[in-house]
Structures are given as C-alpha cells and as structure tokens.
C-alpha cells in the first residue's frame, strides 16, 4: 500500500518535470535553433541531412556580422538615441509627474484624464501625420527627429507611471522634510527621488526597451545604412526566401538581443513594484 503511493508520487513527479522540460524547450526553441545555426560551420542544418546540434562549430558568422555589416555603427546610433531619449523623457517627465501627483491646480484632473486616453492610442496610427510634421521641420532622416518622437511617445507612459508611484509615497515624509528646513527642490532631490528609485529604474528601462526595439518608425524615417539603429539594421539583414544569409541573420539577432536580455533579468526585481504601483492601464 505504502509502496504503491510512493510509486505514484515518482510517476507524478516524472510527468510534471517532463511537462516542464517540454515547455522550456518550446520557450527556447527559436533561440536555440538560431544559436546552433549561427555556430554551424558546414551548413549542415540547412541541408536535408539535418540535425539540431551543429557537427562543427565556427565563429565565422559572428565575425561576418561585425566585419561585413555596420553593426557597430548601428549599435552606436542605438546607444546614442536610447541615452538621449531616456534623458529627454525623464528630465521632462519627472517634474511633471511630481507636480501632477502633489499639487492641486486648475485643470489637473482633465489633463490626467486626457493623458490616460492618449496612452491607449497606438503611435503607429498617427505615423503619417508625424511624418508630415517632421518633414516641415526638415527632421526626416535625422536622429534628433526620432529622439523627439520617441521621447514624446514615451512621455505619456512615463508621466502617468511615475505619477502613480509618487502618489503612493506618503506626503508626511515631505512635510517632515519641510519642517527640517528643506526647500522644494531639496525635498524632491533628497527625499522623493531616492524613495522613488524603483519607478525611476522601471520607467527608464521601459523607455530603453522601447527605443531598442522600435523598428517601424526607424525604417520609415531613416534611410541609408549608416544612420540605422540596431532594430532597423536587423530588419534590413533579414534572410528572405530569396536573399540574405540566415546564419548571419541568426548571429546578428542574438548579438542584438544579448544586452536586452541582460537588462531584463537585471531589472526583474524592480519590475513588479515599479509597474504595479504605477497603475497605468493599456
């Protein structure tokens, strides 16, 4: 009797672990396949004589990514645009979010309600209007133009998300600071911002992710290989049915993804608190 129960438990744990191993393989399937294609020397994965693990390993495709394609240039462009977008969006949105959270003034509620509506608007839908707007300023095919677009697009999220977090910080802490003789600027920089670290990090990471992964504006607004971002560059590298090299594309995909994976797993511990207390809805 006891033995039967034990057997049942073993079988159950076997099934359960088997299920999760299959789930994990499915979750990693395209990534692992890209990895093995990118390392495969003989092209054996492409032929009929097919196996999942390459017989001979080579770094050739990775070398080709860095030598034949202007990946480093794209990387530089992307870094620059990401940093500039985060800077512009955060420097403008932090004070705005603070004011909307802490001060009562005429029109505050209306503006917040409008912002919530704007948040549900997918920017792709007004891309044509943005294109016309930017072309009147002569900012098509410039990085500055895209930085302004990205910062403006993410500002709605940044403002609402951080405002929600500021709301959750008790006002009493600030009042205590005021009694101790801090002025407004000091209260924000010395008291509020350190407390708001999780939301600053999460909001920043979301902006970084957005710029890093944005391709539809950059393929429509930027021309010329040397101006591209990683996303639009990768888009141009795609192996189609007739052209391009799939192993090189696979290698480039993994190179591009690597920093994003690092940032993702690093920021995980802040994710839940930094997002859920912000209370922005799709």
């Amino acid at each position: 009797m006891k033995r039967k129960k034990w057997m049942k438990r073993i079988a159950g744990s076997f099934l359960l672990n088997g299920f999760f191993i299959i789930c994990c393989l499915l979750a990693l399937l395209p990534i692992l396949y890209a990895l093995s294609v990118s390392l495969d020397a003989k092209g054996s994965l492409l032929s009929a004589n097919f196996s999942f693990i390459p017989q001979e390993i080579t770094g050739e495709h990775y070398i080709r990514v860095f030598t034949e394609k202007p990946v480093l240039q794209w990387f530089g462009n992307t870094m620059l645009m990401t940093a500039a977008t985060v800077l512009v969006a955060m420097v403008t949105a932090v004070p705005a979010a603070y004011v909307f959270s802490r001060r009562k003034f005429a029109g505050r509620k209306v503006v917040l309600r409008v912002l919530l509506l704007l948040y549900s608007f997918p920017s792709v839908l007004s891309m044509f209007a943005i294109y016309k707007l930017m072309s009147t300023f002569g900012m098509i095919n410039t990085h500055i133009g895209l930085i302004i677009i990205y910062a403006g697009t993410m500002s709605v999220f940044a403002l609402l998300n951080m405002k929600g977090y500021f709301d959750a910080i008790p006002v009493e802490i600030e009042e205590a600071g005021r009694i101790d003789g801090c002025d407004d600027v000091k209260i924000v920089t010395k008291i509020v911002l350190p407390l708001a670290r999780p939301t600053l990090i999460v909001t920043g990471v979301m902006i970084v992710n957005y710029v890093w992964n944005e391709y539809i504006f950059s393929i429509n607004f930027l021309t010329g290989s040397d101006r591209m971002t990683l996303a639009s560059g990768l888009y141009s590298l795609q192996a189609t049915e007739t052209s391009g090299s799939w192993p090189v594309f696979a290698a480039a995909s993994l190179v591009v993804s690597f920093p994003v994976l690092v940032i993702f797993f690093w920021s995980q511990r802040y994710m839940v608190s930094g997002l859920t207390s912000g209370g922005v809805r799709g």
Binding site: A96, F100, A129, I148, V156
Partner: peptide
C-alpha cells in the same frame, strides 16, 4: 514645471492625432 513634458506630448502625440 510640467510644461516641457506637456509640450512634448502636445507636439508628438496630441497634434498628430488632431492632424490625422
């Protein structure tokens, strides 16, 4: 204080929607 952010949103989000 909020104007830089609101102007940016006005330029990149609100104006294009109205223009659309």
């Amino acid at each position: 204080v909020a104007s830089p952010s609101l102007l940016l949103i006005g330029l990149i989000v609100v104006f294009p929607i109205l223009y659309t």
